[in-house]
């Protein structure tokens, strides 16, 4: 069971990282998306516990999507008001990314499993991963602007993922 759970988390985390890759041009954007996604993910899963055992299972995902969209909109509005420089960098990508990452995380981790445990673990991993990829691309990008282009994002993520799986001595998925 726990082994199965671990595999679920790494698959979920991977899905999240791949989707969030677009926000990794700098440490700041990476971290902000990471934190925003974590807030939405954890809060939504908390609220979902109210509906989890009561609502018909085929409607749960709809509730989940509405809640994620709602929290995303609120975070977007607050960011527009208090962190305009972040919006200038991420633009319209911001709400889209938060929304998509949360939806993908949920569906990949299992359609009827609204576990806070998975949400928490995924969030921590997601913030770390986006932060690390962001800082590598930002630092290298100062000298090599090609690092800020799309192809470099794949290479950076691939190499860092390999390093991580080398350190933790397991296959990423």
């Amino acid at each position: 069971m726990s082994k199965n759970n671990g595999k679920k988390i790494s698959a979920t985390l991977l899905a999240a990282i791949c989707t969030g890759l677009v926000a990794t041009t700098s440490l700041r954007t990476g971290l902000s998306i990471g934190i925003a996604v974590s807030i939405v993910l954890i809060l939504t899963n908390l609220i979902m516990n109210i509906f989890k055992d009561r609502a018909p299972s085929n409607m749960l995902i709809l509730f989940y999507m509405v809640l994620v969209a709602f929290l995303t909109s609120i975070i977007y509005i607050i960011t527009q008001a208090y962190l305009p420089e972040l919006i200038a960098e991420l633009g319209v990508y911001m709400p889209i990314l938060i929304f998509s990452v949360c939806i993908i995380v949920q569906i990949v981790s299992g359609e009827e499993n609204y576990s806070i445990n998975i949400a928490l673990k995924t969030s921590i991993g997601f913030i770390l991963a986006l932060g690390v990829i962001g800082i590598v691309r930002e630092v290298l990008g100062k000298n090599y602007t090609a690092m800020l282009e799309a192809p470099a994002a794949f290479l950076t993520a691939g190499i860092l993922l390999a390093i991580a799986s080398g350190i933790f001595n397991k296959k990423a998925i």
């Binding site: 799309a150 192809p151 290479l155 691939g158 190499i159 390093i163 998925i173």
Partner: peptide
């Protein structure tokens, strides 16, 4: 492929190279 690169890492790198080609 070196052990650590097997699976997703090598796929991401393949995508990266493909992205350069698509450039």
């Amino acid at each position: 492929v070196i052990g650590a690169f097997r699976g997703v890492p090598i796929q991401l790198i393949s995508l990266g190279l493909m992205a350069y080609a698509f450039w």
